[in-house]
Computed example of a mutant assay.
Amino acid sequence: MAVSYAQIRESTPLVFEQGCSTRVILDHVMSKWGVLVLSSLSDGTLRWGELRREVDGISEKMLASTLRTLADDGLVHRESFPTVPPHVEYSLTPRGRDLMERMLPLMAWIADHADGMLGRN
Score class of each variant (00 low, 15 high):
Leu46Gln: 10
Phe81Trp: 11
Gly49Ser: 12
Ser42Cys: 09
Asp98Trp: 11
Glu101Ser: 13
Leu99Val: 04
Ser91Tyr: 01
Glu10Phe: 07
Asp73Ser: 12
Glu101Gln: 14
Thr12Lys: 15
Leu63Ser: 00
Gly19Tyr: 01
Leu51Lys: 00
Leu36Trp: 05
Arg97Phe: 07
Gly34Ala: 02
Leu26Glu: 11
Leu46Lys: 13
Ala111Cys: 08
Glu101His: 11
Tyr5Asp: 13
Thr45Arg: 15
Gly74Lys: 06
Pro85Arg: 02
Thr12Pro: 00
Asp27Ile: 01
Ser21Gln: 12
Ser65Thr: 13
Ala111Ser: 15
Asp115Met: 08
Gly49Met: 09
Asp27His: 11
Ser91Pro: 04
Val55Thr: 09
Met103Glu: 06
Gly74Val: 07
Gly49Gln: 10
Ser31Leu: 05
Glu101Pro: 03
Thr83Leu: 14
Leu104Phe: 00
Ser80Asp: 06
Gly57Ile: 03
Lys32Phe: 13
Asp56Met: 10
Tyr90Gln: 04
Arg97Gly: 10
Glu17Val: 02
Tyr5Glu: 15
His28Glu: 14
Trp48Tyr: 07
Pro105Ser: 05
Val35Ala: 10
Arg9Trp: 00
Val3His: 14
Glu101Gly: 12
Gly34Met: 04
Pro94Lys: 08
Met30Val: 05
Met100Leu: 11
Val35His: 05
Lys32Ala: 10
Pro85Ser: 02
Thr66Leu: 00
Gly57Asn: 03
Val35Leu: 15
Gln18Lys: 13
Asp115Ser: 08
Leu26Ile: 08
Arg23Glu: 13
Ala64Val: 05
Thr66Cys: 05
Leu38Phe: 06
Ser59Met: 02
Gly57Met: 04
Glu50Gln: 09
Ser80Cys: 01
Lys32Val: 09
Gly96His: 06
Gly116Leu: 08
His87Leu: 13
Pro86Glu: 07
Ala114His: 14
Glu79Ala: 10
Leu36Cys: 03
Ser91Phe: 01
His77Gln: 11
Leu36Asp: 07
Gly116Ala: 11
Arg53Pro: 00
Trp48Lys: 05
Arg68Met: 04
